Amino acid sequence: MSDLQITLCFHEDAGQVDRDRLNDIVSTLERTHFSVTELNLANTTNQDINSAFQDNHIVIAYGGDGTVHHVLQHVINCPKPPIFAIIPGGTANDFARTLNMPMNPVKAAEMIVKQQTKQIDIGQFNDRYFLNFFGIGLVTETKQAVSESGTKATLGRFSYYLSSLQSLNAPEPFSVSVKSDTRHYEGDAIMVMVGNGQYTGGVRAFFNQADMSDGAFDLLIIKNVSARSLFEIIKANITTDPKQLEGIEYFRATDIDITTTPPQQIDCDGEDGGTTPVNITILPQHITMITGDTSLFQK
């Protein structure tokens, strides 16, 4: 049998790649009929990446959510998109958790060898794609505060959300119009989240019932509630029926227009996504991804 081509992508200057661990991952993949090409994203151009992905069977993003987001943009634009896989190597590894991939990188490589796949929805706005979430408001403010303080590596993203919320007595509300194919909301809010995956910051914080292949987003609008109330909502992990929570608008949609006053910074899978206004659409089962144990998928 001829070797199947794999490109293993990573950011070696991001402080997340252990060379010995990387060698173990490559050895695990090459014990089967895979031929692995390593691609350090730190010193490649977009053209180099696009060229490297041609005629690949699988493209792997090894790293954190930022690396996954970066690689996704190129995978999705391939004329014949390869299977996409994630080997967790960051702080939160949110979408890898939704896929039930092992958090141990070598065990994740062993799972990739099994080639167990699922068709996954992805979100799109402008020319950007996302797997996990789109957010505006407090989600971007806490990210910026922690990026400046340098506490992400020690606390993890969700922990620093909670830490930041405790220190914010009066989050600044903004005016928002959310028009979708299912519902229209107009009023004040301190945060809007559009979810495809289940995890934020390594735990099921906002969308623990989300289904990544059902062809719809889960949309959460947190109105002008106090930071303390929001802290309690998030700490409680928004379980089975967030519609019952005071100060929350929760619904599902496939096409969403968001307009805000003033314009709001966008957080897209933890990366800078520009500013509002924006139209978000879902591309149902648009990409094939390697999954972990399917018996663990939430029904």
Score class of each variant (00 low, 15 high):
residue 5 Q to I: 02
residue 150 G to F: 07
residue 205 A to D: 09
residue 15 G to S: 03
residue 292 G to L: 08
residue 57 H to Y: 12
residue 122 I to L: 14
residue 29 L to G: 00
residue 186 E to K: 15
residue 70 H to V: 07
residue 227 A to Y: 05
residue 97 R to I: 10
residue 149 S to E: 12
residue 30 E to C: 01
residue 38 E to S: 03
residue 151 T to W: 15
residue 101 M to W: 00
residue 221 I to M: 04
residue 9 C to L: 02
residue 277 P to I: 11
residue 57 H to V: 04
residue 253 A to T: 10
residue 264 Q to N: 03
residue 52 A to R: 10
residue 11 H to P: 02
residue 192 V to I: 15
residue 72 L to N: 02
residue 288 T to I: 10
residue 131 L to G: 01
residue 74 H to N: 09
residue 151 T to P: 07
residue 8 L to C: 00
residue 31 R to Q: 11
residue 253 A to H: 00
residue 190 I to W: 03
residue 217 F to R: 04
residue 33 H to C: 05
residue 163 S to C: 07
residue 202 G to E: 07
residue 151 T to F: 15
residue 179 K to L: 11
residue 199 Y to P: 01
residue 188 D to C: 06
residue 62 Y to S: 02
residue 46 N to E: 09
residue 116 Q to W: 05
residue 1 M to I: 13
residue 272 D to C: 06
residue 72 L to P: 06
residue 148 E to D: 12
residue 30 E to T: 05
residue 35 S to I: 01
residue 291 T to W: 00
residue 104 N to Q: 09
residue 110 E to R: 03
residue 14 A to D: 13
residue 189 A to Y: 04
residue 105 P to R: 14
residue 191 M to A: 14
residue 132 N to S: 09
residue 207 F to N: 07
residue 172 E to W: 04
residue 113 V to K: 00
residue 115 Q to W: 03
residue 20 D to P: 03
residue 100 N to P: 08
residue 239 T to M: 15
residue 238 I to T: 12
residue 1 M to F: 06
residue 270 G to L: 10
residue 145 A to D: 07
residue 20 D to A: 14
residue 173 P to Y: 00
residue 235 K to F: 14
residue 160 Y to V: 05
residue 269 D to Q: 07
residue 298 Q to C: 12
residue 141 E to D: 15
residue 179 K to C: 09
residue 218 D to N: 13
residue 19 R to Y: 10
residue 270 G to S: 05
residue 296 L to P: 09
residue 70 H to S: 00
residue 39 L to H: 00
residue 292 G to I: 11
residue 12 E to S: 14
residue 45 T to K: 03
residue 80 K to P: 00
residue 294 T to W: 01
residue 55 D to F: 07
residue 27 S to I: 06
residue 163 S to N: 15
residue 67 T to L: 00
residue 206 F to Q: 00
residue 83 I to Q: 00
residue 297 F to V: 14
residue 203 V to S: 06
residue 35 S to E: 09
residue 43 N to A: 06
residue 160 Y to R: 02
residue 252 R to S: 15
residue 42 A to W: 02
residue 205 A to I: 08
residue 54 Q to T: 08
residue 68 V to K: 01
residue 37 T to S: 14
residue 222 I to K: 01
residue 45 T to N: 02
residue 85 A to I: 08
residue 159 S to K: 10
residue 158 F to W: 13
residue 106 V to K: 03
residue 21 R to Y: 04
residue 224 N to A: 13
residue 80 K to D: 10
residue 177 S to F: 07
residue 247 G to S: 04
residue 28 T to Y: 01
residue 252 R to C: 12
residue 92 A to C: 09
residue 210 A to P: 01
residue 137 G to D: 09
residue 51 S to N: 15
residue 221 I to K: 02
residue 170 A to Q: 15
residue 254 T to N: 09
residue 272 D to A: 14
residue 121 D to S: 06
residue 70 H to K: 05
residue 227 A to C: 14
residue 2 S to D: 10
residue 45 T to A: 06
residue 24 D to S: 15
residue 232 E to H: 12
